[in-house]
Amino acid sequence: MDLSLFPQILLNGLMIGGIYALIASGFTLILGVIQVFNFAQGQFYMLGAFIAIAVVTNLGLPYPVAIIVALLATAILGALLYFAVIQWTTRSGFFNTMLVTVAFGTIVAQTAMLSFGSREAVLPPVVPGTLSLGGVTIPNGKLVVIAGAVVVMAALHFFMKTRIGVSMLAASENRDVASLQGINPKRVFWITMAVGCGLCGVAGALVAPVLAASGTMGSTIFIKALLVVLVGGTGSMSGALLAAFVVGIAESFAFHFVGHLGLLVIFVLVAILIFFRPGGLLGKPLPVPGE
């Protein structure tokens, strides 16, 4: 192998990792706090991208505004999903809620297919050009994505330190104790849904200038998010962040050496990892209802 390619492949992986991190953190937050396996997570990512593109191209607003609009819109949709559907199903079980999110994801995906078809939508690069460092090229746009991801993750970190954030953590640790301490579970839950879905929306808005958006982008990214959560451990935010980069880099290398079968290699690697660390890289095994 050409050794000069090594840093480039590594960097490619890091850049993909930034995107995965945002989606996976939203997913793991929802799974950890309200124990909802949100299969519709990827669709919020897709919606975020389309909203951002629409805001910039149709309304002519600057890109940073578009990110905020995408965040708010997907967060509100997430909260609505909680109030309209999920709050009625959480009581009747984990699978019931999961199925509801599967069905919701289908509705969003098919509606997107009917309205956009395969029409890809793009934003012109916000920060054009590439950065060259000793034979390694990094598109500036992707640096922006990583920077954005870091900012959002930092904001999330501080959000979790606020009163509501602490309540969310408390609820994820022990629901009964949390409600004894006067934490209103319903409030915690809808805010969790809003934050988790909003994170995906932001992820979509962030990648909009780098990747073309399409109606199917949500379904493809969800599988990667799933792998990230598996590697990072359920409910662990920092685990998700670390795992996102690990998966990204593994994927980049696997593709370079094994081609399209690289995905199989990653599956095997993930299986081995779970064998040695059932809780993922940083997470600890969740208390499971009934066990």
Binding site: Q8, K142, M217, I223, S252, F255, H256, G262
Partner: peptide
């Protein structure tokens, strides 16, 4: 490349 590739930098490299 797999159908669910999200980012094509590795392919391009």
């Amino acid at each position: 490349f797999p159908n669910d590739t999200a980012d094509f930098a590795p392919v391009a490299t």
